[in-house]
Design a protein around this nucleic acid. Structure first.
Lengths: 195, 195
DNA sequence: GCTTTTAAATACTAATTAGTATGTAATACA
DNA sequence: TGTATTACATACTAATTAGTATTTAAAAGC
């Protein structure tokens, strides 16, 4: 990677860390410059303004990072009940750069920024859509294999699971990671009921 | 109500509306003053600073408003499966001052402010705690009446329901209220499985 | 090797921010 | 009726904000 590309990536990854912990609006450009040791000239050479950096961060850091944890594990799913639950367990308890007290970076940004920035909203919706789609396909696969009842609405299940994740991430911010295990238990009960 | 108490209440209710729509940090004191027609002197006479106003808004506007919709309907619950579902239906589809695109004011504030302000976090946790407690009591009541299986963990159910609400409110911000009906359908499936 | 383009450093600006200092009506109370 | 106290109004300040203008160094292309 060239030196220029390096500073660009560095700005994005450090900005991600700060924004993940503090929120987008609470993270000032000066704050980013102080922690990256990058000068203002360099920052505005690589990004037209703060929002353009934020959008790049969503597309280049958050999207691929979350996609790998949320969508990829479902792509060759064999048993939706186990696979969806296991995907959720890993995301909540195992992914190292996610911390209960800071929630989920994608969920946080939807909450904070979707009323304020249409571009952010659409970029984050893309992730949600693809995750829901992967869950839906997994459930439909389960209907074919017979693990899932034929009358189950795969799209509804996907919506419910995504909403549940988003919600438990929010709860975890105020109550800590203890609620994650509770959620996983009840998610299992919900999923079992689909069979 | 005295004139002074009137301006105080007016500041809180208008601040609530602005903060509900824009978020806490995106709502400046000047923004509040402009929409209330209250002067800066009046504002800082009633509140030591912005955060003290925010805390008063949580305790005096958000808490009682949400309590009436979330907790009160469950206090004399007869059938948890129906009552919890109906409570959720009313909250999502009927409460007039809540709009899908703005989410839930309590959920929004937990998301935005719980990492930044301990007082906000605790004030909002109080609401969550009491809501979970009401759900738990309702489920335990159902276990006595026989509507709910004896092996169901009421606390887990409460956690799962609260997380689901929080999550679907977040989804609704980006996707609109269509997902509310889907969520309600799947919530019903989850609740039925408890019996 | 010279020139052009890329990448970045420095110094500035205009707007907005929360909050203060001070002054003045209105109200309560003695 | 005089006097506190309450409830505001106005004008200011210091810090922070995103963003710009200008200069300079590094690299690439010829």
């Amino acid at each position: 990677m060239s030196k220029a590309a390096n500073t660009r990536t560095m700005i994005l990854t450090k900005s991600f860390e700060l924004i993940y912990k503090q929120g987008y609006q609470a993270t000032s450009i000066d704050n980013i410059l102080a922690t990256t040791q990058v000068t203002k000239g360099a920052f505005f050479y690589h990004f037209k303004n703060k929002d353009e950096m934020g959008l790049a961060m969503i597309n280049e850091i958050i999207f691929p990072g979350m996609y790998a944890s949320l969508v990829t594990p479902l792509l060759n799913a064999k048993s939706p009940i186990n696979d969806i639950h296991e995907m959720m367990r890993v995301v909540l308890l195992k992914v190292p750069f996610l911390r209960a007290k800071y929630g989920c970076p994608a969920v946080n940004l939807i909450e904070e920024m979707s009323p304020l920035n249409e571009d952010f909203k659409h970029a984050l919706l893309k992730l949600t859509d693809q995750w829901q789609d992967a869950i839906k396909k997994s459930v439909n696969q389960g209907k074919i294999s017979g693990e899932i009842r034929a009358d189950v609405n795969a799209e509804y299940v996907a919506c419910f699971v995504v909403a549940g994740y988003s919600g438990i991430r929010n709860m975890g911010k105020a109550m800590g990671s203890a609620c994650y295990n509770i959620y996983l238990q009840e998610l299992k009960n919900y999923l079992k009921q689909l069979g």
